[in-house]
């Protein structure tokens, strides 16, 4: 299907503004910058070139330097006063909302904070969307991981996994990612000799290593968050507030009770959350989830004894 009109015209106006603000550019640079082919950039420039004020002569058209264009350099001569337009309300919410999610997650570098501030200023109505933290990460840990990625070195850390097992690992960090409010590091784990997505609130005592990162980031992001099995919870209706927050959940009303069905990617996290609706819980399936709830509840009681 041909590219839609609005995105294409938005890019064409963007080319004009980019050239106005940052000076001439090669076709190849513009292609890389706007994420399209060089052929597409040439088509865009050629179309801009014949556009202008109605009924006007050649002086009323958007104009480029023809000699430079022959050498694949785009040099703007006359923009006819057009240029990039402000963010639409939907665009603003899409950009501010997503960036707000990582800032609220506590893992964002300084550039993300300043970008968010600039976006809100550019929009003038930055209150249209708000991102609320759910499980904010430890800022010091996030900083260590960011430093490691910037210097391209490994990180040594202690990880306590879903089964409470403590391991020491050396990881090659690739990307910090906030998924449904919780923060993870996508990395290559040298101990497992495979790619892993580790939850930040299970990482302790991370220190910057000296060895360089050698493995390329995995193509498949978020692979380890694939649900391991489907769970079904029957609970009193008043527990719905929690069940509704589970990723991908379907909640069905059955009179005084609700039945929630969802994919479980992390048994221990789900079990821990289910304790919060202990008095409302009626039935937990399958057995591995019920067993984990049982184990955690017993541990919580033992700690109080």
């Amino acid at each position: 299907m041909a590219e839609r009109t609005a995105p294409r015209v938005t890019r064409m106006l963007g080319i004009v503004t980019h050239l106005e603000r940052h000076g001439e550019a090669t076709v190849a640079d513009l292609a890389a910058h706007f994420g399209v082919s060089e052929q597409q950039i040439r088509k865009d420039v050629e179309l801009l070139w014949v556009s202008g004020v109605p009924g006007g002569g050649p002086q009323d058209l958007i104009d480029f330097d023809a000699w430079a264009f022959d050498d694949d350099v785009v040099r703007l001569v006359n923009s006819q006063g057009v240029g990039q337009v402000r963010l639409s309300p939907r665009e603003a919410v899409a950009l501010i909302g997503a960036l707000g999610v990582v800032v609220a997650g506590g893992v964002a570098p300084e550039a993300a904070h300043s970008a968010l501030a600039k976006l809100k200023e550019a929009v003038g109505d930055g209150d249209a969307v708000r991102s609320v933290p759910v499980h904010p990460a430890d800022p010091a840990l996030a900083q260590t991981l960011r430093d490691a990625m910037e210097r391209s070195v490994v990180v040594d850390l202690v990880y306590i996994d879903a089964n409470d097992a403590r391991t020491e690992r050396t990881i090659e960090p690739h990307r910090l990612v906030v998924v449904d409010g919780a923060t993870y590091i996508e990395c290559f784990c040298r101990r497992a000799n495979d790619y892993r997505t580790l939850r930040l609130d299970r990482i302790y005592g991370a220190t910057l290593g000296t060895q360089p990162i050698v493995m390329a980031p995995s193509e498949a992001s978020g692979f380890s968050l694939v649900p391991q099995f489907e769970a079904t919870i029957v609970a009193a209706r008043s527990a719905r507030w929690l069940l509704d927050t589970f990723p991908g959940v379907e909640v069905a009303d059955t009179g005084e009770e609700v039945t929630a069905t969802f994919g479980v990617s992390d048994v221990s996290v789900i079990a821990g959350q289910l304790l919060a609706i202990g008095p409302q819980l009626r039935r937990i399936q399958p057995a591995p989830l019920a067993a984990e709830v049982s184990r955690q509840a017993a541990a919580a009681l033992a700690a109080l004894a």
Binding site: R4, P7, G14, T17, H18, Q84, L87, S88, E91
Partner: peptide, 13 residues
């Protein structure tokens, strides 16, 4: 699509 179009606008600046 709004996110992508917004990113084109950011690229202009």
């Amino acid at each position: 699509p709004d996110a992508n179009q917004g990113l084109t606008k950011i690229a202009s600046a």
